[in-house]
Design a protein around this nucleic acid. Sequence first.
DNA 1: GCCGTTTTCGGCCCGACTGTTTTCAGTCG
Length: 581
Amino acid sequence: MTNEQVAEILDQIATILELEDENVFRIRSYERAAEAVRGLGEDLAEIRAGDGGLQSVPGIGEAIAAKIEEILDTGSSAYLDELLAKYPPGFLELLKVPGLGPKRAALVYHELGVESVDELEEACLAERVQELKGMGEKTEQKLLAAIQTYRQGQERALLGEILPVAEGLVAWLRDLDEVLEADYAGSVRRGRETVGDLDLLATSDDPGAVCRAFAASGQLREVELAGETKVSGRLPGGRQVDLRVVEPESWGAALVYFTGSQQHNIRLRERGQDLGLKVNEYGVFAEPEDPGQLQGECVAGETEQSVYEALELAWIPPELREDRGEIQAAEAGELPDLIALEDIRADLHVHTTASDGRQSIEQMAEAARSRGLSIMGVTDHSRTLYVAGGIGLDAIRRQRDEVDSLNERFGDQFHVLLGTEAEITVDGGVDCGEEVFELVDYVIGAIHQGLSSDADRMTARVVRALQTGLIDILAHPTGRLLLQRPPQGLHISEVIDAAVELGVALEINAAYDRLDLSDVHARLAQDRGALLAINTDAHAIEHLDFMRYGVLTARRAWVEAVTVINTWPLSRLREWLQSRR
DNA sequence: GCCGTTTTCGGCCCGACTGTTTTCAGTCG
């Protein structure tokens, strides 16, 4: 049972409790527990066996701990099964239709016997929904439109697909005369690996004008809602976009509010309550002096710093705003000094035409240099990876000569290291013979084949490969492809421990469909004392720009520059590689 | 259901928008 699977069960329980009109705080507890589980780097089984057990996790108490233990032992929850039995199979799908929440889903089920999205559509077309209490003709039409939206699918998109779009829209907004400031917020600003929609924020003395201009701009395929302070619509690809425009004095408060995860925001507001302050998207407000007033004096709001300061907290970087301990750290003045893109000197995982890349070593090196890097490592695939044009000894000899002459030309301006991306074989061997090992400066180990074996065997295979002493960096450790292929069943905790013991650096592969290690795993790795490497795995010049996604993931993992070998100067990097031989 | 330098019981974030309503429920973020 993976943490994600357990989290999904907890979420399902919460969803059905909503249908049952249960106590909202009980529902929130399940939701918070699910999020807490998703934020764990270690497997639940491991935490269960450790000090304090499952209840050491904030948000998991006696009752939910018992349910998680049952899920870990049996693979399911009797409580969930009991709840599910009250509804037809597939009923929960109904709740994915935008605008149809638990109350109305329960209503159409009990009153009309609607059990699925298809049946909901039939009921709407038959004009039976509008006869229900609290429903009407307009609601029915909206539901029909929402069903179409739902069927177009694409619940989430990759960060790397959305971030450039967000930047384009922000630039467009900033160009408007009426706009004072503009930025993107939401999960994009937090740097989450996938995002559901795009949140934009702007300030203006004339919000209505900004909204009208945006709605009429042609940036959106369709406009779903256009008010004086808010515009909702869909991008040409169908992705949802929300723009909110606030007065300048609320800029910071709005940015905080629209950036933080729901749990982070709840924590902030609870903290405000404790301090006698009310926090909302317009500012931080003192208690009203006389009871007649709705709202007290505004004590902060123009900048994010002012909002956090009013809550007696240090400013929290957006990537940390997930309720994963950042508020406690900000209170104690113990926030990490997060790595930044400017800290990166090297990209150590780059392919060329020698295997399956599109450009030569020289072209990739020039491109890396023009991007401000001072070191690049060439790591074409090793021979056994036929499908990617893996190369053998002769080709690596030629690369060695080419790299050496390039370095002569670059002098101390830039340096190319020669590596190899060596295949980890099914038996835990490393496809890197003695002669190749002597020719290269370092070895990246990776698995591309035989991905289907079970977790115990997979873990043993990777650990054995690390123990050969041949590998300096373990590439994309779990092999996941976001929205396509789940991570390997791999006991990541054991792999991390082995990496720490053997001094192997674990990669955060920055390709935005991988981001592997993930944020939670990278955080665990740093906590355990592992070294990390952030590499683009570029197969073409433009892929070198993926570095930002790797850095965002590292920041979400609370990673500091000192942990990441790509931030080291050449002398230190060389020293480290030498010491491993 | 969780949690606690004011509590082991009694609290628990806040607001916008919409459509249906004579004052509010549902949904969303």
